[in-house]
Design a protein around this nucleic acid. Structure first.
Length: 440
DNA sequence: GCATAACCCTTG
DNA sequence: AAGGGTTATG
């Protein structure tokens, strides 16, 4: 069964266990990837070797499009119509960007092995959450995105980041959706430059766009960067000088870089640590939010918050130090796996124990146990008929939950097939499946 | 230094 | 009421 090569794409062999796009691109590291469901393959709907999604990200000079099958990453780049350049050279640049952005030189399978050895809790989730690695993001985008993240949720952060790009950077190009989709052509905007966000009027505009108190933080941070480091554009990198300066923090020690980040408006310890980990190469750093704190309490014997529930600097340090000691040099990467495993979207398959659910807000909607939540539009005993507006909202949620379940089910199916095969004697086939899933 | 309130806005 | 917190006051 040959894997069909999507037209226009190049192939990069890499097992899911090294990189899982479906997990990594929506686990709250980057908020800017567009995700397109692909129409189901004509014959073999359950063939996990046919990509189910296309993922797109707009860079400064091109839009990168990705698809993934069990053992291959398919990639292509789209350029604005006007510019010219050497085709071969561009291809090489795109591949180089992918290798850098996904940090493909780091052997994730080996890291999973080490974390599993050192930590029984990690061992329990490793097989269900393969391929979750740290992206190496652009520091400015990372900084602004996480200033947006305070007291906020992934859905709204994503909306805000998108509206930042739409409002403060010109469209690079437009592109139709992947296949016979009913969606229309969409313009792709890069992330805005610091100078675009530094103008004083930005605050009011962002407030009007629903950024709340973060509007001021963003404008002030951008202005601080521009004031301190200028707006000169490097013709090679097309980076403004303040963006280039942010990158120099990669060569700095963790604590020195953190000190620099904490100077910006809207940046406290947690946001600073996110930037250190996600764009400044500080792989040992563990950002501690309420979620990570809960994980630490439940599984690693940390004490709860003080009575008000606020996270004190001292407690932050305790949690961070403890988890860093468990996971070692790449502790921040391990933290990301556990965090993703415990994310709301994965609640029914995550770490949450039935007796004490860590995320009480999302009723478990597992295949085996039907949720006790009212069905849309149905009047249940003791309830009134829900409005049509609320009905639509519920339907939206059900639909997105179904998409998640589809992925989970596929993963479970693959595991089940693997187990069945390995106990049924067809060892050659079982081995082939194993090699595919575990990677070389 | 170390707790407390206030902050925008969306959703359960 | 709380969400992947931070800033400004006591």
């Amino acid at each position: 069964m040959a894997t069909a090569m999507p037209a226009g794409f190049r192939a990069l062999p890499i097992p899911i266990a090294q990189l899982s796009l479906s997990a990594v691109l929506k686990c709250g590291q980057s908020f800017r990837w567009s995700i397109f469901p692909l129409p189901p393959a004509e014959q073999r709907v359950l063939d996990a070797n046919v990509p189910t999604y296309e993922y797109r990200l707009c860079l400064r000079d091109r839009v990168v499009c990705l698809r993934q099958s069990m053992d291959t990453l398919f990639y292509r780049a789209v350029f604005p119509p006007t510019v010219s350049g050497d085709h071969q050279e561009r291809e090489a640049e795109t591949l180089a960007w992918i290798r850098d952005y996904f940090q493909l030189d780091i052997d994730l399978i080996d890291l999973y092995r080490q974390w599993s050895l050192a930590d029984p809790v990690f061992h329990r989730v490793r097989d269900r959450f393969e391929g979750i690695r740290m992206l190496r993001q652009d520091p400015f985008e990372n900084l602004i995105s996480f200033i947006c993240s305070s007291n906020n949720n992934i859905a709204r952060i994503t909306k805000m980041v998108k509206s930042l790009c739409l409002t403060y950077s010109p469209p690079l190009l437009t592109l139709p959706p992947p296949a016979g989709s009913d969606l229309t052509e969409e313009p792709y905007h890069p992330f805005p430059s610091p100078s675009a966000l530094a103008a004083p009027e930005v605050t009011a505009r962002l407030r009007a766009l629903g950024f709340g108190y973060r509007a001021d933080f963003i404008q002030k941070t951008a202005a601080m960067l521009v004031d301190a480091h200028g707006v000169t554009v490097n013709s090679q990198t097309t980076l403004e000088s303040s963006e280039a300066w942010l990158r120099t923090l990669r060569k700095m020690s963790t604590s020195d870089a953190r000190t620099e980040l904490l100077k910006f408006m809207g940046v406290g310890r947690k946001v600073a640590d996110c930037v250190l980990l996600m764009s400044l190469d500080k792989r040992e750093v563990i950002p501690v939010d309420t979620h990570v704190h809960q994980i630490a309490i439940k599984h690693y014997g940390l004490r709860g918050a003080t009575k008000t529930g606020a996270m004190s600097p001292k407690l932050y340090e305790e949690v961070s130090t403890k988890l860093a000691a468990v996971w070692g040099e790449y502790a921040g990467w391990a933290h990301s796996v556990l965090f993703t495993a415990d994310l709301k979207s994965f609640a029914s398959y995550g770490l949450a124990s039935p007796s004490t659910p860590s995320t009480p807000s999302t009723p478990a909607l597992t295949p085996g146990s039907v949720s006790s939540r009212e069905s849309p539009g149905v009047a249940t005993p003791g309830s009134t008929l829900v409005s049509s507006k609320r009905k639509r909202t519920q339907l939206k949620h059900v639909r997105s939950r179904l998409v998640e379940m589809e992925e989970e089910t596929l993963a479970q199916l693959a595991t089940a097939v693997e187990e069945t095969l390995s106990t049924d004697g067809d060892s050659s086939l079982a081995d082939r499946v194993k090699r595919r899933r575990r990677g070389a």
